[in-house]
């Protein structure tokens, strides 16, 4: 990891009123800073993500929501010239610690991307990919995983007769649900979703939202979205980000109806953004 830069001296002025889950927090982000080269993208981000709840990250374009999300499973590691400060802890362990196994970390965090990115292979192979790279070759286990994950992703009924067909033959919405099935196939603890519906039509979006609702409780879900109605519909807690800072983090209902921060109010009421 690059050397830890100076953290800005001002205390974070974030407004906090999050809903607390039954099992407490699973991810703790503490004064997390991130630079792309010389440009700082995240400033002193500090939130606790509650286990089993759906947490939405909202905010205008370029505010750093995706960057924060991708920091959770260290997808940003691929970028040259990245520097970090502060800490992110999963179950109390710093994920940026030298000894942490990145691959093991990513196995605990399924991720769904903005555009559906099924692999150019069959539907079944897509779903079993995460456990195959883990070395699982037992056909019975693989078959069970396909069925379980596809059922959990509400795709089983549509594709059960063509599991050997290429995944690229599916529609956009089906592809995204396949990606969700793939993300939960290895039974992760956390599901990260980076604007999962931005490339989908309203009908497919509705299906994904229903799915998120069903997955609630089984997985801790962190979802980045542009769509405020969506955040209001699916999430328990919402973090509003602006220019790399977390302005308000709290219960979704409160954030959208009676925000404590002026900026949040301006944004959710559509005055800017």
């Amino acid at each position: 990891m690059p050397d830890t830069p100076q953290v800005s001296p001002d205390p974070p002025d974030t407004v906090y009123h999050p809903m607390t889950g039954a099992e407490g927090s699973i991810i703790e982000i503490e004064r997390f800073n991130l630079w792309y080269g010389d440009k700082q993208a995240l400033f002193d981000n500090s939130i606790d993500i509650q286990m089993g709840l759906v947490t939405a990250l909202i905010g205008p374009s370029g505010c750093g929501k995706s960057t924060l999300l991708r920091s959770l499973n260290r997808m940003n590691d691929l970028i040259d010239g990245l520097r970090l400060g502060g800490a992110i802890r999963l179950d109390g362990a710093d994920i940026y610690h030298r000894d942490i196994d990145v691959i093991g970390l990513r196995k605990r965090m399924g991720m769904v991307f903005q555009k559906p990115n099924p692999f150019p292979m069959s539907i079944a192979d897509n779903v079993t990919y995460p456990i195959k790279v883990d070395g699982v070759r037992d056909r019975r286990v693989l078959q069970e995983t396909v069925e379980r994950a596809l059922k959990a992703a509400a795709l089983w009924e549509e594709v059960k007769d063509r599991l050997r067909d290429s995944a690229l033959g599916l529609s956009g919405g089906q592809q995204q649900r396949l990606c969700i099935a793939r993300a939960i196939a290895a039974d992760p603890d956390v599901l990260l979703m980076d604007e999962p519906c931005s490339a989908l039509d309203p009908l497919a979006t509705a299906k994904i939202e229903d799915l998120i609702d069903e997955l609630r409780g089984r997985y801790t879900i962190v979802i980045v979205t542009h769509n405020m109605q969506q955040a209001a519909r699916v999430s328990d807690n919402t973090a509003f980000m602006y220019l790399g800072r977390i302005v308000e983090y709290g219960k979704t209902k409160t954030v959208f109806t009676t925000p404590r921060s002026r900026r949040t109010e301006d944004y959710v009421t559509g005055r800017f953004g």
């Binding site: 997808m75 965090m109 991720m111 555009k115 990115n117 990919y129 790279v133 883990d134 990260l192």
Partner: peptide, 24 residues
Amino acid sequence: SLREGSLACGASKWQTIKYIVLPK
């Protein structure tokens, strides 16, 4: 996006190359 998808599944870099990048 395919590379990222594979890495996010917990595949190593070499597994990503072997199973995703090279076939493609």
